[in-house]
Nucleic acid binder design. Structure first.
Lengths: 193, 193
DNA sequence: ATTTATTTGGAACATTCGTTCCAATAACTT
DNA sequence: AAGTTATTGGAACGAATGTTCCAAATAAAT
């Protein structure tokens, strides 16, 4: 009987998330979100509650898509070490391709809101833990296969790699070029050899 | 003849900067700045122009104090490599001590505003370049003295160290404890051996 | 085609935002 | 001590903020 929703919720979330990603939470106004999503205020409020609710859903979408992307990399046939190298190469490519220089959504959230919004911070931290876990698994497998150095524990190396990724995200957002980013990755990854 | 300023400009800037540091630029209102600095709106506007001007001056103060702190470390008698280790140890201490979990002012600025404010981004980038230069000098000296590995260039290692510091700042702001931060530093610094 | 339930657009809301203004204040000079 | 001048506090401003509301529109079911 009722009129059905005229928009794809995921598509709207993707558009909203991109605005948040570029401008941050506090830097984004509802006016911009209305313009970016193409739907009206009432539809947004009816569907997502309020600005904060829309932000939370944006993060959830990001997490979901991130998990799917990771799963795709997981199931290729390269060795663990090669996977790590490909992850870094791909990330550097993403950083340089992104004309908006958005950086990492999670890093942006942590630096903007970790003092101000516990709920959102918890969501971001969970995402960080998840990706560290993937790195940890690869390092462990790589060490078992003998292609990754064992002078540091798998946990230590995973933390180091994760930390390097956050650094690259910041360095990249600060305007570093390909040569610099690859230089950093080279040095950081040499710990695995 | 005139009435003189009743406040210490540097002291006011320090208070304002701390608010910006905790809440970000867009997350900070003039009301909060009035409350935090203890002086009135007119005094702020008369002295610093507007909110953005106050922010710019806050960054300049940060840069100045950072430079002084760096100079102090520079002139101790430890070896270059030891200086680097001390820098990391000190930074981890700072991160854990800071009950506000402010993170790094420069990193916060880059992640919040690199898409939105070119002037501020340029100032932050300059600060980043300056600290990379200090690291570069230490690495070069350490390599010359034979205490730092030469399999990577001094520039590469400096970039890697700088990148690790940014990472630590983010990881720390995400709530990591001492064990994790020291683990990361240990792995990252092992590239120097 | 009519009914029904929900979405939708846009006007309107109170609040907060950054900023301006002015009268009152107070310090330095003579 | 008196005059001069910049500082100061607080009221006031328009614009922008996040949010609410309601009449009109619309798609599904009868």
């Amino acid at each position: 009987m009722p009129k059905t929703k005229q928009f794809d919720e995921t598509e709207v979330l993707r558009k909203a998330r991109n605005v948040f990603w570029v401008k941050g939470y506090n830097g984004t106004s509802m006016d911009e979100l209305v313009r970016a999503t193409g739907l009206s205020r009432s539809s947004i409020y009816d569907t997502f509650g309020d600005k904060h609710g829309l932000f939370v859903r944006s993060i959830q979408l990001y997490g979901q898509e991130e998990r799917e992307a990771l799963a795709k990399i997981m199931q290729n046939d390269f060795s663990p070490k090669k996977k790590i190298h490909l992850l870094f190469k791909g990330m550097i490519g993403d950083i340089l391709e992104d004309k908006d220089n958005k950086g990492c959504f999670i890093v942006n959230i942590i630096t903007e809101l970790s003092c101000l919004d516990k709920q959102v911070t918890a969501m971001a931290s969970e995402e960080m833990a998840r990706s560290e876990e993937a790195l940890f698994q690869w390092v462990r497998q790589g060490q078992a296969a003998g292609e990754i150095n064992k002078s540091h524990s798998a946990r230590t190396l995973a933390r180091h790699l994760q930390n390097t990724i956050y650094g690259l995200r910041v360095t990249g957002k600060a305007g570093a070029n390909r040569a610099i980013l690859e230089d950093i990755a080279k040095a950081a990854l040499s710990v695995l050899d």
